[in-house]
């Protein structure tokens, strides 16, 4: 496969782009994604303030930002939410922020202007203008009580939020041979308990998944089921050490 130009937006599936920053100093990479659907776009996990200029440049390279009608954020952390107010200034007034109501009550403290679309109050789905439907999969306490994943049935991509993320000083856009170890390290430190993790993994059974696109770490394209099974069986959480 040709070397990826990580200084550019990378199309990971038809109409779906990674627009993140290859921040070599960060052990925890952040991965914003864009879905283009006709004249509408959805922006997933926009990112942090320090990453904003680079992410913005990549967004502008693939879409007129006024086409972005929805930002989806899986939880409230600054590494995925802090840049939203800056993007609001560029995107314009027709934007809504899709998240869980438990996260929205915290995210408002970033000083947002856009209305919230509470995924838990809207049937756990978002219908785009074309009729395309994104599905939200509740994954509570992983690692926030309102955490959810986003599944796109068209591309069969699971945008997994912090789940399937990894610590990766030796980062690549797509998961490599030792990604399972980096992924375990992240989950052991950030996820609360094996039982809670296993419950979320069970919700992925029966779902056809081509790619797992986490907010941290690398995109999983080879045998996603193997990684689901690793997390299904992973002991995690500091409580075990008491």
């Amino acid at each position: 496969m040709a070397d990826l130009e990580l200084d550019q937006a990378v199309e990971i599936a038809p109409g779906v782009y990674w627009v993140g920053f290859d921040d070599e100093a960060a052990g925890l990479r952040c991965n914003p994604y864009l879905i283009l659907d006709g004249d509408e776009a959805v922006f997933i996990e926009p990112g942090s303030v320090p990453h904003f200029p680079i992410v913005l440049r990549k967004v502008l390279s693939v879409v007129d930002p006024r086409r972005i009608k929805t930002i989806i954020v899986s939880h409230q952390d600054p590494d995925l939410c802090a840049a939203i107010p800056r993007f609001e200034e560029i995107i314009g007034p027709d934007l809504k922020i899709a998240t869980h109501s438990r996260a929205a009550i915290l995210i408002q403290h970033y000083g947002l202007r856009s209305p919230f679309y509470h995924v838990d109050q809207n049937g756990w789905r978002l219908t785009l203008k074309s009729g395309r439907e994104l599905k939200f999969i509740f994954a509570p306490y992983l690692h926030f009580p309102g955490m959810f994943m986003t599944y796109d049935p068209v591309t069969k991509i699971l945008f997994s939020g912090d789940l399937f993320g990894a610590f990766s000083y030796d980062w690549s856009l797509y998961a490599g041979e030792y990604y399972d170890e980096a992924m375990k390290a992240f989950h052991e430190n950030y996820m609360p308990a094996r039982e809670i993790l296993a419950r979320a993994m069970a919700k992925l059974d029966g779902l056809e998944i081509n790619l797992i696109a986490p907010q941290h770490g690398s995109i999983i394209r080879d045998n996603p089921r193997r990684y689901i099974d690793i997390l299904r069986n992973l002991d995690c959480g500091d409580y075990m050490l008491d």
């Binding site: 052990g27 990894a166 610590f167 000083y169 990604y179 170890e181 980096a182 992924m183 375990k184």
Partner: peptide, 13 residues
């Protein structure tokens, strides 16, 4: 060793 091969990469480890 395995864990660091994932986190730091094989070369550094």
């Amino acid at each position: 060793v395995r864990r660091e091969m994932g986190v730091l990469g094989p070369e550094k480890t």
